[in-house]
Amino acid sequence: MAGISLVLSAGVVLFNTLAIRRQAKAIKNRSMLRQGLMGYINGDIGARELKTAVSGRESLLVGLVAQLSDELGEPSHTKLIEVFELSGLQSLVRKELDMLARSRNWRKRQRAATMLPYIVGRQVVIPPLLHALEDRVMMVRFSAAHSLAAIKAVDAVVPILEHLLLPDEWPIERTIEIMREMGSEAVPALLSYLGQPDAKDACKVFAISALGLQRAGEAVPVILSHLSHPDKEIRIQCAKALGNIGASEALPDLVTALGDNAWEVRAAVARSLRAVQDERAINALVGTLGDPVWWVRYNSADSLAELGSSGITALKYALTHQDRFARDVSRLVLQERNILKSSQSTAVS
């Protein structure tokens, strides 16, 4: 048995040494390939020299091209896609497409969904990615949606909304993030979706939030029409979106929404009012300094502090508020912003 320990240890040393050598070789190959690709992008070398640089290093090409595309952006991205049109390298694209469509291993499908936009043009990649949105594994759908968003595939907006409407455990922020990545190009499609009578409430949440993150001013009327929606989550996202857009025309509706039954909506509205930058918001926010829920009180006070000197004056005035909680939260925010010194100051050496 002791012999086994020693033999196994020798095996570990050998394995580790080989692994380190393999890693060093891969780093060297990667560096040479990168050099070749950079030369090709800069026009220093032609297709023939590039093919020589790639020869024997094909397995590293897809990952490296993705990394360079990400680092350098356009127009290098387009130039890098051309690499895969060289004879002998088209098979790499076919392999990835085949993997996305047929692989039994979902991680391989996920990788293909992530990498394809970096190695092939959008016209070729959009149909398989749209198909991948129906994959049985959430992570594959997610990667496909990210890729579609990265290439601004506007036609994919509604399919993404509907196919990422997943079970409870899937947090909505991830889908909203994808819509945000899509950029302002997605705004017309999102507005059109919100106008559809058969639009699902859960999808509306994503759409409204994404419009807010895009700061789409043209979306304000549509968002306002949802501010009194029976679904609490939609009302929260409406309040947040209006805050992100900073729509002053939304002020009267936002002030009304400060009286919502759900505290989450009130807290979101209190936070959004800071972005409206309208002094008319001050009175409403002073009124919610005494809200029963801490987050509503805190967001109201914090927004007041953001609303400039009038807001700060209102906060100082609230230090004598009849409600103890309103006094406390006003003091907290004023101290956080170094406007008020602590009563404990003398205790510190």
């Binding site: 048995m1 320990s5 196994l8 580790n16 040494t17 692994a19």
Partner: peptide
Amino acid sequence: VVLGSLVSICAILLQATTRMRVEKP
């Protein structure tokens, strides 16, 4: 004694298959 050592060596071996491998021999 010996089985315990074997389990430890297996743990080190598995580490060598990951990116957290020990670089210096």
